[in-house]
């Protein structure tokens, strides 16, 4: 089990009903963690969802380490 800090923004923050949470998880990768939290919070299907670990873009096979901070990045819309 790893203890991961997860931060949520925009549509995911609203659906999760919180801006962040500590998650104790058996998920080995960012992708597995997303599937776990998607089921728990009922996230919408989003095209081109990205993920960041410790404030850098990561891929969905990134292995999680205790203490990681994970942020799921919905489609952006700046400008």
């Amino acid at each position: 089990m790893a203890r991961i800090r997860v931060e949520y923004f925009a549509v995911l923050r609203e659906r999760a009903g919180r801006a962040s949470e500590q998650v104790d998880t058996a998920a080995a990768t960012t992708g597995e963690l997303f599937r776990e939290l998607e089921a728990r919070h009922g996230f919408p299907r989003l095209p081109s969802l990205k993920v960041a670990v410790n404030a850098e873009f990561a891929d969905w096979n990134r292995r999680l380490v205790d203490g990681d901070c994970v942020v799921f990045i919905p489609p952006v819309a700046g400008g």
């Binding site: 925009a10 960041a52 919905p74 952006v76 819309a77 700046g78």
Partner: peptide, 14 residues
């Protein structure tokens, strides 16, 4: 710069 910012910077608009 504006094209890349719109495409890459994690900003969301409601």
């Amino acid at each position: 710069i504006i094209d890349e910012v719109k495409d890459r910077v994690p900003i969301w608009k409601k």
